[in-house]
Design a protein around this nucleic acid. Structure first.
Lengths: 123, 123
DNA sequence: TTGGATATATCGATCTTAGATATATCGAAG
DNA sequence: CTTCGATATATCTAAGATCGATATATCCAA
């Protein structure tokens, strides 16, 4: 199952859910998504970082750079510095909204599926 | 809830489901989707007809023009002629595939949602 | 010392989306 | 008898979404 089955809205829902477990950083979020989905879903950098930027701009997450001991090196240099993301109250609100919207949509979709002769809509 | 929440894959799933009830025609499919979703979902001509063409090309549906009594009029003229769509065996197979993929994805997503503190994953 | 994992970030060709547009018919209300 | 809304099909296209490819830099283990 490729990520193409995981649309943008769902990617946001998934990332917000991971962040609801506690603060995390980009790469870690990607690993968590892969772990929780048992490798089914992968979020590449090309989807993850633009999304995190969007969430940050929308004030759904609060960010902070991890302090890294770096003897005399340029503190602005890229590399292994972690940028931490933490859900804001607004972010938690948005998550609740998205979860609700998902449940409603899933309920409607189940109507179509059960009519189509697919039993086991809600096992 | 706008249709923006209904992505292409899901639109196909929904249309295939409606067709599983029995043969139908474009406009009727649109009405059926609106009815079953209680107005939540709308498929405009801009999404519906390209999708139906795609399904036809992929041999997932078989099409036929409705015979319309039309005294001496051009039988090729557009207007209120209905083009009927009927699921093929391949189409039913594809529907089963899509339903299965949806259920798997929904199950994975529920893992994220329950971890996020949203109870009632499978009510 | 070198390769792989960690870590962040942008770019862009390609696909998707959904409203706007076009055409034509039928039935009902005025 | 005529006008208007619903029925019915279909295409086009601007705007947006997608995700692999690319870039850079660090840390650690073999």
């Amino acid at each position: 199952m490729p990520l193409s089955d995981l649309k943008a809205d769902q990617t946001e829902l998934v990332v917000l859910s991971v962040l609801a477990e506690g603060p995390s950083y980009g790469y870690g979020i990607g690993k968590r998504v892969a772990a929780l989905s048992e490798g089914d879903w992968k979020i590449g950098p090309g989807q993850l970082y633009p999304l995190l930027s969007k969430l940050e701009k929308a004030k759904l997450v609060k960010t902070s750079w991890e302090e890294v001991k770096r003897d005399g090196a340029d503190p602005d240099a890229a590399g292994r510095r972690r940028k931490w993301y933490q859900l804001t109250a607004k972010g938690r609100q948005r998550l609740a909204q998205r979860v609700d919207a998902h449940r409603r949509a899933a309920a409607v979709l189940d109507r179509f599926l059960s009519i189509a002769g697919a039993e086991g809509a809600t096992p």
